[in-house]
Design a protein around this nucleic acid. Structure first.
Length: 491
RNA sequence: GGUACCUUGGCCGAGUGGCUAGGCACCGGUCUGCAAAACCGAUUACGGCGGUUCGAAUCCGCCAGGUACCUCCA
């Protein structure tokens, strides 16, 4: 830890030196998925962004408790308080128990995350498993006078809250105009004001997911779970709350109001928001229907995709942009990432094989410091990657016998690559390279390629090309090197 | 309509006052039986207009274009 870690705090709209509440420990909460459909590319952005943060904080010595929730109840389809529950709707359409829907998509989400090398969080609480905590949270808000009951439902009184607090401070909006001009015209609503949001909703008779409460048989409002579970596992005050920018309003704004309403103070010190992934310049999202699921990327099974993209390509693509920038999806951009990742990982594989000389003819010093510096500057992963690419050039020269490196520098370079590529950026070595294949399998391929080497020595090009062509047809990629060969399975 | 943000070379994408980001593609060369990979070199930038400054992609103003949030969305 050469310098201080600086993070952009959405709440103050500036970069701030990160100081944990408790020395050596970090509490991190990130909004997870609503599990009523497969995860798409957009879901990979916060998962990877905060995985990067989680990994980095851990690597620089913090003990991190990372909580990422599963929303399995309370997230309504349309207006925050009127529509059908997303999970319940899916269950009704598929004729399944709501919890079957939840389990199915949670399993698939976990598979996708594992493929992307997103580490599991420390705790992954389900909203439906914390109904008691949520009811207690609502009780406090009601007791403190910030909420009212109406027809068995409980709503947060935004107008009252806004008189003494700033509802909109996070998203930078002033709610006054909305309050003065946004009255309901039809007068049908149970709410006093249409900016009020639900803390507890009374369930209609056909609604399956329901729990008893002091107000009605019903279910919690969507915004409540994060306040209740964050507090439950990270305390009344914690360090970092993350999520997508689109959750800033109203979701995170409501969380702030709920915390102040229940506890009398805010809970979150640093708010972090990742930007969106766009497709043809537009946000990729459920509502626009222009999303491509992660599985479709992995399998190349979507009309907008000209090929399949590996999970590591997707991860690298996301890490090549800073998390607060939008990043536009295109086949061209992904193919560039694929090639770039190949270059990076190829050099890494070579690094593990090169030998030390008595002196270094190239300068690899300072890479560690420069990478840390970039990470400390609000997780600037693209800059980290550019420094690693600089080192790739040196590694390739050494591998080609055009440069040398001494034992000390070599050891340092290996450590830096392992630290940043594997541990921090989370880019695993390709599982199908000769490095990690099983012994028997590896031996068989090596035997074939040794035979090809012999054929080459005898200038038997027919045999050597036959071996290479047939292995290529089976999905292997063969590259000749100065005194041997490299291979990997690419399909 | 309100609020915020963005516009960098063929493509992606860093960079917030002076110093070649990086990757991909393309072109020339080296190496190679061929191919791939690798290395060397060349080329292509800061939406437009004006201002501040010794100096602006970077600060300020105006204009043009685009996006996000304001309803669910990562």
């Amino acid at each position: 830890m050469q310098n201080d870690l600086v993070l952009y705090n959405t709440l103050h709209r500036k970069k701030e030196v990160f100081k944990p509440i408790h020395e050596g420990r970090v509490g991190l909460y990130v909004c997870g998925p609503t599990v009523y459909g497969d995860a798409h590319l957009g879901h990979a952005r916060p998962a990877i962004t905060f995985d990067l943060l989680f990994r980095y904080l851990t690597k620089i010595g913090y003990k991190v408790r990372y909580v990422r929730n599963i929303t399995d109840v309370g997230h309504l389809e349309n207006d925050a308080d009127e529509g059908e529950d997303k999970i319940a709707k899916k269950a009704r359409l598929e004729q399944l128990e709501p919890m079957e829907v939840v389990q199915y998509y949670v399993n698939r989400y976990h598979q996708a995350m594992e493929a992307l090398h997103v580490l599991p969080p420390s705790i992954e609480p389900h909203a439906s498993g914390h109904i008691i905590e949520q009811i207690e949270f609502v009780k406090k808000i009601v007791t403190n006078g910030w909420a009212y009951e109406s027809e068995g439902s409980v709503y947060f009184d935004v107008e009252k809250y806004n008189k003494s607090h700033h509802y909109g401070k996070l998203s930078g909006r002033n709610i006054d105009e909305l309050l003065s001009t946004g009255r309901e015209l039809d007068g049908q609503s149970e709410k006093r004001n249409n900016v009020d949001f639900a803390l507890w909703k009374k369930a209609s008779p056909e609604h399956i997911m329901r729990w008893p409460s002091p107000w009605s048989d019903g279910f919690p409002g969507w915004h409540l779970e994060c306040s209740a579970m964050g507090t439950r596992y990270l305390g009344e005050e914690f360090d970092i709350h993350g999520g997508g920018m689109d959750l800033m309003f109203p979701h995170h704004e409501c969380e702030i109001a709920q915390s102040v309403g229940a506890l009398g103070h805010e809970t979150v010190h640093t708010w972090m928001h990742n930007n969106m992934i766009t497709i043809n310049g537009q946000k990729m999202g459920k509502s626009l229907g222009n999303f491509i699921t992660l599985e479709e990327f992995f399998e190349g099974n979507h009309q907008a995709l000209t090929q399949a993209y590996s999970p590591m390509t997707i991860r690298f693509f996301i890490l090549q942009a800073h998390y607060r920038s939008t990043v536009d999806f295109s086949n061209e951009a992904l193919q560039a990432s694929e090639k770039g990742l190949e270059r990076l990982m190829g050099a890494y594989a070579r690094l593990l094989k090169i030998g030390a000389s008595s002196n270094s003819s190239i300068d690899t010093k300072g890479i560690r410091e420069r990478c840390f510096e970039a990470m400390n500057d609000d997780l600037n992963s693209p800059i980290v990657i550019s420094h690693l690419f600089d080192a790739c050039k040196s590694i390739n020269m050494i591998s080609d016998g055009k440069a040398t490196i001494n034992a000390e520098d070599l050891k340092e370079l290996k450590e830096v690559f392992e630290l940043f590529i594997q541990d921090i950026l989370g880019l695993g070595l390709d599982e199908k390279t000769s490095q990690s294949a099983g012994e028997g399998y590896k031996g068989a391929i090596n035997l074939l390629l040794d035979m090809r080497m012999d054929a080459k020595v005898n200038k038997d090009w027919a045999t050597s090309d036959k071996i290479r062509n047939e292995l290529t047809a089976l999905g292997f990629e063969i590259k000749d090197t100065k005194d041997g060969y490299e291979w990997k399975l690419v399909k």
